[in-house]
Write a protein that binds this DNA or RNA. Structure first.
Length: 556
RNA sequence: GUCCCAGUAGCUCAGCAGGAUAGAGCAACAGCCUUCUAAGCUGUGGGUCGCAGGUUCGAAUCCUGCCUGGGACGCCA
């Protein structure tokens, strides 16, 4: 808890005491103290709506209650400078913000750790994200999922959760057979033979590439082998090639995983039958029309779901249940799955499975990432997975750069559609928010460097009374909010809050920069105080950017 | 037909578990570089928060219905 949070707690405690000593409510009746930061500075630093909340309990007019509260408020505590009653019964607090200067030494001391808290109390959370099928290149939707998932993991980690990041590899179903057939076709074609692509084949450029590589490395030695042998080979080769590519692309994109979990391993280690057996013991399984059904309607699903088809093979749901059981067996308190919008219909049956396995429905959280539309030259870029003409993650990385992508993909709340403006993302101007933020960081670095060249050394031990301007106070307040902002973003699973925060902090920095000269050898002590402030802002900006996978450049 | 998400300034979006006169950025307009990077700053204009009801001291926020856009509803994965 930093000094700002400490101050807020003290203030809340004082408000509570005032209500109790004024006899307006009993301890039990007392609602939670809500402290808000008014948008208008004329309304003070903090305000509480306690008087309005108490109106019914105390059976008095809110303004009267507010007056009673203020009479019983001990203003010597909680750094209160002035109190006002306003509007329908708000109590506005004007705080002596001198305490904020204590933030700077804290931030400088904590460095990369600044912003960390223990709100997660070590809760074990597993985040499964991306999990794209190893049958083609990663495209825009995956890029957004990767950006959001990775940012969320960093945020949760910072907020004191114990995070494990996982990628589920769908390497067992029909689609892998199709991959094998597609690779086979491209291989044959690379050898100059006529060979049709399978019905649901994968038309991506990557598969054509595999065919070429195979033809070069192996010549035509596979062309006349028995079908089964060919399929096994192409399957294995294709899978390995695709997986290596996925991992490499994601790593370039600064996204890494703790575990790559193979669906096939569920078969090999015989995890599926026992999972279904367990549900059967609990009475959620029945047979009908030659198939095995999961009675998911017990848990609010629209209809029951088939687990084993008439032909004896599993539906996708079966290994998925086994997989989630496996996750839970590994001792995670909470599972977060990050899925594309096209999978949202799948949530109720998965939730039902979690409950059938004996866990609370809330154990599984599914964050849905809405679609991304790509715009170039003001026009929507059409995408088609079928023809393989989708814009890939790698292409986009090369064209617009990783920083801009990472920033843009988490910039909006995940559950709203995202228009990705290529021209804006590529532009090196202040219109581009990622440059705006990075520029703020680079500007500070330049100042610190120049101070150093002039032989001016700053430290956490500075004269705080020299930081009195409104612009400096704005910066300090913003710095103080960092830890709480991360905690909120973690609890609400809203990584986009981080981009908003660093954008606002950058704006405050630019504003300060234009209003005040930092380095002034004639005012050495003031210069040192400002440099300390700059360093604190720099650390906070860098930490914020780190959370969303954006680089903090020292010069631009 | 059922379900999910969205509808806020000309455009793209915030609005944190109802709170004061609804906020940013872009675009428009007017200013600021002999001074630490103008990739920046300052100011102005711009809104029936899709529509209609309801809940209450108070609703962009919660509830109901409707309209519009997108997506999902397989013994596919």
């Amino acid at each position: 808890m930093n000094v700002m949070q400490q101050m807020q707690e003290n203030l809340k405690e004082e408000i509570k005491n005032a209500v109790l000593t004024a006899g307006l409510a009993t301890e039990e009746e007392l609602p939670e103290v809500i402290l808000e930061q008014p948008k208008d500075k004329a309304h003070g630093d903090y305000a509480t709506n306690m008087a309005m909340q108490l109106a019914r309990i105390a059976k008095k007019a809110p303004r009267q209650i507010a007056e009673d509260m203020v009479d019983h408020l001990d203003q010597s505590k909680g750094s209160i400078e002035k109190v006002e009653i306003a509007g329908p019964g708000f109590i506005n607090f004007f705080i002596d913000n001198q305490y904020l200067t204590k933030l700077i030494p804290t931030i400088m001391e904590q460095g990369k750790e600044y912003g960390a808290s223990n709100i997660g109390k070590g809760e074990k959370i597993q985040v499964e994200f991306v999990s794209a099928n190893p049958t083609g290149d990663l495209h825009l939707g995956h890029a957004r999922g990767a950006s959001v998932g990775d940012a969320l993991c960093h945020i949760l980690d910072k907020a004191g959760y114990n995070v494990s990041r996982e990628y589920y590899i769908n390497d067992a179903g029909n689609q892998i057979h199709n991959l094998a057939l597609s690779v086979q076709a491209r291989y044959m074609q690379a050898l100059g033979k006529e060979f049709p692509m399978p019905e649901d084949g994968y038309h991506g450029a990557d598969i054509i590439e595999i065919g070429k590589v195979l033809a070069e490395e192996h010549g035509d030695k596979w062309a006349d082998k028995p079908e089964a042998e060919q399929h096994a080979f192409f399957r294995e080769y294709g899978l390995k090639y695709e997986l290596d590519k996925l991992a490499k692309d994601l790593e370039s994109f600064r996204v890494t995983f703790d575990h790559w979990f193979s669906e096939t391993s569920l078969y090999e280690e015989d995890k599926i039958v026992p999972a279904i057996e367990l549900l059967k013991e609990k009475g959620y399984i029945y047979e009908e029309e030659g198939a095995t059904w999961f009675r998911s309607t017990e848990f609010d699903d629209d209809k029951d779901r088939v687990l084993v088809k008439q032909d004896g093979s599993y539906t996708y749901l079966s290994p998925d249940i086994a997989y989630h059981k496996n996750k839970l067996d590994r001792g995670f308190d909470t599972l977060i799955n990050i899925w594309g919008a096209d999978h949202h219909g799948y949530i109720p049956r998965m939730r039902a499975a979690i409950q059938a396995l004996g866990y609370d429905a809330e154990t599984l959280e599914v964050e849905i990432i809405q679609m991304v539309n790509l715009f170039e030259n003001g026009e929507k870029v059409k995408m088609s997975k079928r023809t393989g003409k989708a814009v890939t993650l790698r292409e986009l990385m090369e064209e617009v750069g990783i920083d801009a992508m990472r920033y843009f993909f988490v910039m909006r709340s995940a559950d709203s559609h995202l228009d990705f403006d290529m021209d804006l993302a590529k532009s090196e101007s202040s219109d581009n928010p990622v440059y705006y933020v990075q520029y703020a960081h680079a500007r500070i670095c330049t100042m610190l460097k120049q101070a150093q060249e002039k032989g001016i050394n700053y430290s956490a031990d500075y004269d705080a009374s020299l930081l009195q301007s409104d612009k400096a106070e704005d910066l300090l307040k913003k710095l103080g909010e960092f830890t709480q902002m991360i905690a909120d973003a973690a609890e609400n699973r809203t990584p986009h809050r981080v981009t908003q925060y660093i954008f606002d902090l950058a704006a405050s920095l630019h504003s300060f920069y234009n209003a005040e000269k930092v380095i002034n050898p004639d005012q050495l002590e003031e210069t040192k105080a400002k440099l300390a402030l700059m360093e604190a802002v720099r650390i906070t900006l860098a930490n914020g950017m780190d959370l969303i996978g954006v680089r903090a450049p020292e010069s631009m």
